[in-house]
Design a protein around this nucleic acid. Structure first.
Lengths: 245, 245
DNA sequence: GAAATAAGTTAGTTCGTACTAACTTATTGT
DNA sequence: ACAATAAGTTAGTACGAACTAACTTATTTC
């Protein structure tokens, strides 16, 4: 394959590297692995269309890339049936997620970024930051176990809490719950929720739910709120017994 | 051109951006601009071979890319005669250099990186960091005007001290000089020089120079040193009058 | 000033990553 | 059970960015 030039993190032009590293992936390939991981967390293999939608590209492009990733041993593809990560693909995905979440934490804690506004920046930096840098950031933060949105940070070895949480949308009426984490995707939505007191750690009770994805009423502290189904689906909670704290 | 996928910093998949930004360049294109800028600092247009050598690629590849950059209005190419940056190309190059130097400073000051070991990391991050992030880093550092190697940091608007410095290699015998900056390229070389007390701010006197690129003898403080021509060429100094401090 | 050498360019190829259009396989609703 | 629809794949194309080989233009040297 020789030293052709799409190798990014390997630093082809920087001098004196004894060990050549095991061939860096492109940014795109990394992104595929990450979204496949995320989709797989839902329980089933990642469908072509779902991957395409997450990445904002055409389904046909995904078919092509999946073959390449399969050739590299990073995913297993069953034709017409979706992809799942191999062990090595999974490790890479988790390392990326680790990077992403540590970078987000660092930006918020050390550089004054808003909680709701770091996703995009981290999305780019995660592909450029070395493992060493990420470890240093983690150290500077005291090795946190969750990012500012409450998402767990995988270890360098790829261990992570994969417990499935239910979202507000799934909560039965009357239930009390603690907000554990929320999706970091949409800054607008995060700002909206924050303004309503819905942040990791908040305790809320579900009061009522209108049918047909209608508004959901809940109390946060002693304030009453009513939010839409889409917003509710982005908030993950842990159910509390009536007696809890 | 539609939303094809080589746009990096524009964040095609992240939502809610009102102003679409003026079309991000690829990493490679940015690197070309930076290298051209650096070569041009030597006084003449950047020759194809020089660019190729700096980037570690074949000269033929450079010919191709120069045409693309010319088409984008970032360089002016005279056939068989080299390239120079246009005003807009220059601005981009300077913004990259600004990023690079601020990132290096940040890594050293805030994350405990060695002075001699940040180049490679910065080289990758400079393409991923947003202007906002870089400004925040600069603020956190108190808006420094030089990076850890003594290189001046351009302003966001692209102003920078372009004064040409002489290197130790050009110094006349007997001259006293203060080290202003040194090339950040080679960590090994930097470590070597640091161990000998040759760092930005150090005062030295040139004692003797052997011909044919032979060793150069100098005093640093009261220690005597003898270094090779290559090492000497990486150290830039400011001549001092005998009376200066 | 012509021959030798160095520098630069063009042509043709490859690979990654996207695209659209056309086709095939699965799933679903009656 | 089978037609309609949805999901997925292949084929063909484009572009960026690299490569080698062959050729052209500049520069140097005798």
């Amino acid at each position: 394959m020789s030293a052709r030039a799409t190798d990014e993190r390997s630093g082809a032009r920087s001098t004196h590297r004894a060990v050549p590293r095991e061939k860096a992936l492109t940014r795109q390939a990394e992104d595929y692995l990450k979204v496949i991981y995320e989709i797989e967390q839902g329980g089933s293999p990642a469908a072509t269309t779902d991957i395409a939608e997450q990445l904002g590209i055409a389904a046909a492009s995904v078919s092509g890339m999946l073959q390449r990733l399969a050739r590299l041993g990073l995913v297993k593809v069953e034709r017409y049936r979706g992809a799942r990560l191999s062990a090595s693909g999974r490790l890479i995905a988790l390392q990326l997620i680790r990077r992403h979440r540590i970078i987000e934490s660092f930006l918020v804690t050390k550089l004054g970024y808003g909680w709701d506004d770091v996703h995009e920046e981290a999305e780019r930096l995660e592909h450029a930051a070395s493992a060493d840098l990420v470890d240093r950031m983690a150290d500077a933060l005291g090795n946190p176990t969750a990012d500012p949105h409450g998402a767990p940070i995988p270890t360098a070895a790829g261990r992570v809490d994969e417990r499935r949480l239910s979202s507000i949308a799934d909560l039965p009426i009357g239930a009390r719950a603690r907000v554990v984490r929320m999706s970091d995707r949409d800054p607008e939505l995060l700002r909206y929720l924050k303004k309503r007191g819905i942040v990791p750690g908040a305790i809320l009770r579900l009061v009522e739910r209108e049918p047909f994805d209608g508004p959901i009423s809940l109390t946060v502290g002693r304030a009453k709120q009513s939010i839409g189904a889409t917003a509710a689906a982005a908030v993950y909670v842990e159910k509390l017994a009536r007696t809890d704290r």
